[in-house]
C-alpha cells in the first residue's frame, strides 16, 4: 500500500465533492449536477488520467466510507421528528413502498427478457433497488453474481437519485412525503442522501422507504423471482 497514493485519492475525492456541491447549489434541479454522479465522474477521469486503478483507490475508499454506518443510523433523528406523519399516513406509506418493490422486480424481469439479456445478468439485476449487503445476499439465494449485483445497485442508486426529483418536478408532484418515499424506494441510501438535502421530511420518508424496501424485497424476491423467470 502506498501512503502517498491514498492521501492523493482522498484529496481528489474531497475536492470533487466540494466542487460538485458548489455546482449543485448553483443549479440544484438538473440531474447532471447530482453530487454523487458529478464527483464520481470527475474522480474516475482523474484516476484514469494519472494511471491509477480501483485497487489503488480502495484503501482510501475504506477510510472515507467508515462513517456511512453511523450516518445511516443518524436517519432515525429526522424519522423521530416526523413520527406523527409516519403514524397518520402509515397505510399509504406501506402500500407505496410495497407496490414500488413489486414494480421494480416485475419491470426489470420484463425489460431484461425483452432486450434478451443473459439470465445471470438478469438475476443479478433484480435486487438492484436494495442496499448492497442485502442485495448481495438475495442474489446468492436466487443464483446471480454478487459482484455484478453490487455494481447494479450502485448504478441504480446513482441513476435513480439523478432523475427522481427531476421527474417528480416535471409531473408537478411537490408533496414531500411522496418525493421522499419515491426516491428511497428506488435509490436506497443514495436516494436518501439526496432527499435529506431537500429537507427533513423527505429525508425521513426516504430513510423508512430504504429500510422497508430491504425487508420487503428480501421476503418477496426468493419466491417471486423464479416465478417471474417462468412467465417472462
Amino acid at each position: 500500500m502506498n501512503l502517498w497514493i491514498t492521501l492523493f485519492v482522498i484529496a481528489v475525492t474531497i475536492f470533487s465533492y466540494w466542487f460538485s456541491r458548489r455546482l449543485n447549489r448553483r443549479n440544484p434541479t438538473s440531474p447532471l449536477t447530482n453530487v454523487v454522479f458529478l464527483s464520481t465522474t470527475i474522480i474516475i477521469l482523474i484516476l484514469l488520467a494519472s494511471g491509477l486503478t480501483f485497487e489503488d483507490y480502495t484503501p482510501g475508499k475504506n477510510i472515507m466510507t467508515f462513517l456511512l454506518g453511523p450516518a445511516t443510523v443518524a436517519l432515525a433523528v429526522p424519522l423521530h421528528k416526523n413520527v406523527q406523519i409516519l403514524k397518520r399516513y402509515l397505510v399509504p406509506i406501506l402500500s407505496g413502498i410495497l407496490l414500488g418493490v413489486l414494480s421494480t422486480l416485475i419491470s426489470v424481469a420484463a425489460l431484461a427478457k425483452l432486450l434478451g439479456l443473459d439470465q445471470v445478468i438478469t438475476l443479478s439485476m433484480l435486487p438492484k433497488s436494495v442496499t448492497v449487503p442485502i442485495a448481495v445476499e438475495i442474489t446468492r439465494i436466487v443464483g446471480g453474481d454478487p459482484a455484478l449485483t453490487a455494481a447494479f445497485v450502485v448504478a441504480t442508486g446513482t441513476g435513480g437519485s439523478m432523475i427522481a426529483f427531476w421527474l417528480l418536478d416535471r409531473l408537478k408532484i411537490q408533496n414531500p412525503i411522496c418525493r421522499g418515499l419515491a426516491i428511497g424506494t428506488t435509490a436506497h441510501g443514495q436516494g436518501t442522501a439526496i432527499a435529506i438535502q431537500e429537507g427533513e421530511l423527505p429525508g425521513a420518508m426516504a430513510g423508512i422507504a430504504m429500510a422497508l424496501t430491504a425487508v420487503f424485497t428480501s421476503f418477496l424476491a426468493p419466491f417471486l423471482i423464479p416465478f417471474l423467470l417462468i412467465i417472462f
Partner: peptide, 12 residues
Amino acid sequence: MAFFFIPIAVGL
C-alpha cells in the same frame, strides 16, 4: 451523507 456514497460509486 452523499459524500460517503462517492467512493462506493467510483467502484463502477
